[in-house]
């Protein structure tokens, strides 16, 4: 499947929705995913480039931002044999 992460200039992604007074996280689990990723990178389990690569190759445009993060984190931790 082609990776279309460099979306600059592509058409067809619909309107830009601006949410007023948006909170940092929309649910507590998003905050947990964020913190988990920071901790794992901080410990050297994987690095930022590996994380971005994992997001790009496992992401779904149908999933939310932190859902894609969570999928990438799980993928990397498994690939590196930690779980």
């Amino acid at each position: 499947m082609p990776r279309i992460n460099d979306v600059g200039g592509l058409d067809g992604f619909g309107p830009i929705d601006e949410e007023l007074d948006e909170p940092p996280f929309h649910a507590d689990w998003e905050a947990h995913v964020f913190a988990m990723n920071r901790a794992l990178i901080g410990r050297g389990i994987y690095n930022l480039d590996e994380f971005r690569d994992a997001v790009e190759r496992t992401m779904s445009h149908e999933s939310g931002y932190y859902e894609n993060w969570f999928r990438a984190i799980q993928t990397l931790v498994r690939e590196k044999g930690h779980v």
Binding site: W29, H32, A35, A39, L40
Partner: peptide
């Protein structure tokens, strides 16, 4: 799913709760 995965990471010693709180 996130809770379960976090528990697994904690059990393996890959993250600890206070570290996550600090990051946040």
């Amino acid at each position: 799913q996130v809770r379960e995965f976090e528990a697994v990471l904690e059990a393996r010693g890959l993250v600890d709760a206070s570290e996550l709180d600090r990051a946040l």
